[in-house]
């Protein structure tokens, strides 16, 4: 039997909001250690890696490893039915053909159950290599969201240039150009507002706005986002999910064909 319970269904709602624009369906790998999703978008330009640790759940039981193929749009519709304060429980039996979402109101006077059919999916086992990055930048997620949104007006891509002083985002197109420089914060008294740059080598990489604007949908999950960059390897854009796990987006830099 598989059962995972979260007191705050809002977390799962936000997780779905953060992946539904990139993935139409995905395999949820459930084991004793937690729930993991690794899936590429249809165009094979980005990869989503979601990790929810079992110890982050309020109740977690997984008797045997399960691979459950789920429609992300259907799951998203079901989670929209949960009240903001509801508790959510995911439940499936061994060799399941469906998964049940149970929403319980805080005073336990309302109990709603939604059953979703699982889908058969081709298993894509991806290996994410260990990489030491030339630059790792931590910054407020709201700032990153705003920069991606603002610069998207000027072109289809944004160039990230990182030095030890800070990071510069720039875009150019038919209407003109724009660039935004963020300096490393001198004193990180307020952790949520801090901009921290760890640089081994300066990097300059260009990424598609379309994908960046999908990644920033994870902004409501965490006040800070971490960007890890090296030449010729995918950008990693990471948001922590409270004490329960993280979502990482990988995006290949634009390379002139």
């Amino acid at each position: 039997m598989f059962e995972a319970r979260l007191t705050q269904s809002a977390i799962l709602k936000k997780v779905l909001d953060a992946v539904k624009d990139l993935l139409s369906e995905a395999t949820f790998e459930c084991s004793d250690s937690g729930i993991q999703v690794q899936a590429m978008d249809n165009a094979h330009v980005s990869l989503v890696s979601l990790n929810l640790r079992s110890d982050g759940f309020d109740k977690y039981r997984c008797d045997r490893n399960l691979s459950m193929g789920m429609s992300i749009s259907c799951m998203s519709k079901i989670l929209r039915c949960a009240g903001a304060e509801d508790t959510v429980t995911l439940r499936a039996w061994d060799s399941p053909e469906s998964i049940v979402f149970i929403f319980e109101s805080p005073n336990k006077d309302k109990l709603a159950e939604y059953e979703m059919k699982l889908i058969n999916m081709d298993q894509e086992h991806l290996g994410i290599p260990e990489t030491s990055y030339s630059c790792v930048v931590k910054m407020p997620s709201a700032e990153f969201t705003r920069i991606c949104r603002d610069l998207s007006q000027f072109g289809e891509s944004i160039t990230f240039a990182c030095t030890k002083e800070g990071i510069k985002f720039s875009a150019s197109g038919d209407y003109g150009s724009a660039n935004i420089k963020l300096a490393q914060t001198a004193d990180a008294d307020n952790e949520e507002e801090a901009i921290i740059v760890n640089m081994q080598e300066p990097v300059k990489l260009t990424f598609s706005c379309r994908y960046l604007n999908c990644f920033v949908k994870a902004g409501p999950l965490c006040n800070q986002v971490q960007l890890s960059m090296s030449d010729d390897v995918p950008l990693v854009c990471e948001y922590k999910i409270g004490d329960i796990g993280h979502i990482r987006y990988y995006l290949a830099p634009k390379i002139d064909d």
């Binding site: 590429m40 165009a43 094979h44 894509e124 991806l126 290996g127 290599p129 390897v233």
Partner: peptide, 14 residues
């Protein structure tokens, strides 16, 4: 495209 190839190569299938 090269970007797709880069990603496919980077996440080599196990």
């Amino acid at each position: 495209k090269k970007s797709q190839k880069l990603l496919d190569t980077y996440f080599k299938t196990k």
